[in-house]
């Protein structure tokens, strides 16, 4: 027997459900991509028809399968300068707004979560050093957190594969990295020493209570994997940790419209981001 078939109406039914849940809308042209991943997940879960799979997906109390499927539908790979339009937005727009209302001597605080193996917070540091002219006038504190202690150890070590640094301009690679004998790249200690790495479970108030007056949060490709209640709780925790007027950047396929109404949508030249009202 060949694998279970997915009909046109099944695709439409799934597409509407997935759009409502995640904000990701698959056009008809993505049909092959979607079917392929649905069939993979149907096989992995032993579902003999789209109907039985969809029922499980929709009614499973733990939302586990929805998370697994979302994972399959989204490419989640971390590398330097990933979704760099948001870093452009940071240095071109967000930070200037932040410092315009900041009392003198108060540091600018940026929080990257989940930071995974460090590519995101290190990209932020490089962007600040390279592209934010006001850096010498303000103190900037960068926090990077993840729930997984193994990735945190790797992040602090700062050694990266050629694949991970492939989107960096060659000049920046030379400037901030040392090429190791095994072909990997080690980031300059001045960069790695400027970041505080910490283990944080976003939904544990004891872990997040230290984070106050954060001006910019990068929380990309995390909340999309949470269930409805957890992502809403997470947004509330970020809101609380942020300073008034602070910004939060989500992943390119994530939208606050599925999560929380606490934030204001702001459009800048480089990106749409969410702002805690002033």
């Amino acid at each position: 027997m060949s694998h279970p078939a997915i009909g046109q109406e099944d695709f439409h039914k799934f597409r509407e459900f997935f759009y409502r849940k995640t904000g990701i809308l698959f056009e008809d042209s993505k049909r092959y991509f979607v079917d392929k991943r649905l069939i993979e997940r149907m096989e992995a879960t032993g579902s003999d028809s789209f109907r039985s799979y969809f029922t499980m997906l929709r009614f499973q109390a733990s939302s586990e399968e929805l998370q697994a499927l979302t994972n399959a539908m989204t490419v989640n790979e971390t590398y330097f300068f990933r979704e760099s339009y948001q870093f452009d937005c940071l240095v071109n727009s967000l930070l200037d707004e932040v410092v315009a209302t900041k009392p003198p001597k108060k540091p600018v605080r940026i929080w990257s979560l989940p930071c995974s193996t460090g590519e995101e917070p290190y990209s932020i540091v490089i962007y600040l050093l390279e592209h934010w002219a006001k850096l010498d006038r303000f103190d900037v504190e960068i926090f990077a957190s993840d729930i997984d202690t193994q990735v945190l150890q790797a992040a602090a070590k700062g050694v990266f594969s050629p694949r991970s640094v492939q989107h960096l301009p060659a000049a920046l690679l030379r400037k901030y990295f040392t090429r190791l004998a095994n072909g990997n790249y080690k980031i300059d200690e001045q960069v790695s020493d400027s970041i505080d790495f910490s283990r944080v479970n976003l939904l544990d108030p004891l872990d997040t209570r230290h984070f106050r007056d954060i001006d910019v949060v990068f929380c990309r490709n995390l909340l999309i994997y949470f269930d409805d209640t957890s992502r809403r709780a997470a947004a509330e925790i970020f809101y609380n940790a942020m300073s008034p007027g602070g910004f939060i950047c989500l992943g390119h396929s994530e939208s606050m419209s599925r999560i929380s109404d606490l934030f204001r949508v702001r459009k800048f030249k480089d990106a749409i981001v969410y702002q805690k009202p002033l």
Partner: peptide, 17 residues
Amino acid sequence: MPLRKTRAEDLPQAGSQ
């Protein structure tokens, strides 16, 4: 150095937290 490393756990906490 304008990039200043501060440990999150050393940040002062608001009383209500």
